[in-house]
């Protein structure tokens, strides 16, 4: 079965790399430039996993995560933070809010992909 992944980030260059990598691994890839776009897409497509940046305009990563967690339809959806914020306090906050994983930028594409695949099995 094809896994669905939603990449939420406002940096187009980063999105472009991630999209390429996951498509190549056989994911169905959706893209959102901020939280509000992301929330529309999750409702419609119910992805298996959401790769979420934190610092974004309009609705930020934290708010997006909370809203996803509140939707009964999305109970199975896993959420992974991918952000430049790498302080211990940030990581703790992210995991406390219910993120399944907390990954920091800059990252290795290979590592991201394997982490995600691990999470899905």
């Amino acid at each position: 079965m094809m896994h669905k992944i939603l990449i939420v980030d406002d940096e187009p260059n980063i999105v472009m790399s991630l999209e390429y990598a996951f498509k190549k691994k056989g994911f169905e890839v959706f893209i959102a430039r901020d939280g509000s776009e992301a929330l529309e897409i999750v409702e419609n497509h119910i992805p298996d996993i959401v790769l979420l940046d934190i610092m974004m305009p309009n609705v930020d990563g934290y708010q997006t995560l909370q809203q996803i967690k509140n939707k009964p339809l999305l109970q199975a959806t896993k959420v992974v933070f991918l952000t430049a914020k790498n302080r211990a306090s940030d990581i703790e906050k992210g995991l406390k809010l219910g993120a399944d994983k907390y990954l920091t930028k800059p990252f290795s594409i290979k590592k991201i992909v394997s982490e995600i695949q691990e999470l899905l099995t």
Partner: peptide
């Protein structure tokens, strides 16, 4: 500053890796 610097570096690193 760190955040702003990391963003292009992340882009560069990801693209280069691919």
């Amino acid at each position: 500053v760190a955040h702003e610097l990391k963003t292009p570096i992340t882009g560069i690193r990801a693209a280069t890796e691919l």
